[in-house]
Computed example of a mutant assay.
Amino acid sequence: MAYKKIVVAVDVNDASSTLMAQSIELAVKEGAELAVFHCLRQSTVAELEDRIGTFTEMDQASSHRRRIERKDAQVTHAEAWLQGLCILAKGKGIKTRTHVAVGNPGEDIVEYAGDWGADLIVLGRTNRGTLADLLLGSASNHVVHHAQCSVLLVHTQQTSG
């Protein structure tokens, strides 16, 4: 089967270089376009309050503005990181694109791949453990069960960070 559109979903906790290397190798072999995808998790209100102060210290409009500014800064940082990951692929003549989503990684990967018409999704699978996957959910598990295209799981070592 020939792949023409490959989504590689990277996460800061994955060994992105391993995922990118395998994705680039496959894209070169197949003559495919590569979309490098990252999803920022939606922060909870409690997490945001810890970072920007309590709602009693500032009015809601100011709090809302600070949340938007923080999210925008995270998206900008993630986009720059993805562009950096694309440099090697572009050097090998692979057409690349990047996409940063904010939300649920598993769901957003499947949605993006479907909207773009991807033939293959490449993503990392850490050995975080069955219990952690049950409690926290697993993006790779969601993608395997819901994607409308082929999925390649690359075993990666989870890094601390």
Rank of each mutant, 00 (worst) to 15 (best):
V36G: 06
F37D: 02
C39I: 00
C39V: 10
R41G: 00
Q42D: 04
S43F: 04
T44M: 07
V45H: 04
V45I: 11
A46L: 15
D50P: 04
D50N: 05
I52N: 03
G53F: 08
F55L: 11
F55K: 13
F55N: 06
M58P: 10
M58V: 11
M58C: 06
M58H: 08
Q60N: 13
S62W: 05
S63Y: 15
H64E: 13
R65H: 03
R65C: 00
R65D: 00
E69C: 09
E69P: 03
E69Q: 11
A73S: 05
Q74W: 01
Q74Y: 00
T76S: 13
T76M: 04
W81N: 07
L82N: 00
G84C: 01
I87A: 13
L88D: 12
K90T: 11
K90V: 11
K90N: 11
G91I: 01
I94S: 02
I94W: 02
T96V: 05
R97K: 15
T98I: 15
T98W: 11
H99C: 06
A101Y: 08
V102E: 09
V102I: 06
N104Y: 11
G106R: 04
I109W: 09
V110H: 00
V110G: 05
Y112S: 02
Y112Q: 09
A113L: 03
G114E: 10
L120W: 15
L120V: 09
L120P: 01
V122D: 06
L123K: 01
L123P: 05
L123D: 09
G124L: 08
G124F: 15
T126Y: 09
N127K: 12
N127F: 09
R128D: 01
R128N: 09
R128L: 15
G129E: 08
G129D: 04
G129H: 04
T130V: 15
L131G: 07
D133A: 13
D133C: 05
L134K: 14
L135W: 12
L135H: 03
L136W: 09
S140G: 12
V144P: 01
H146C: 04
A147K: 10
Q148K: 14
V151N: 03
L152Y: 14
H155Q: 14
T156E: 12
T156G: 06
T156W: 12
Q157K: 15
Q157G: 11
T159F: 14
T159R: 15
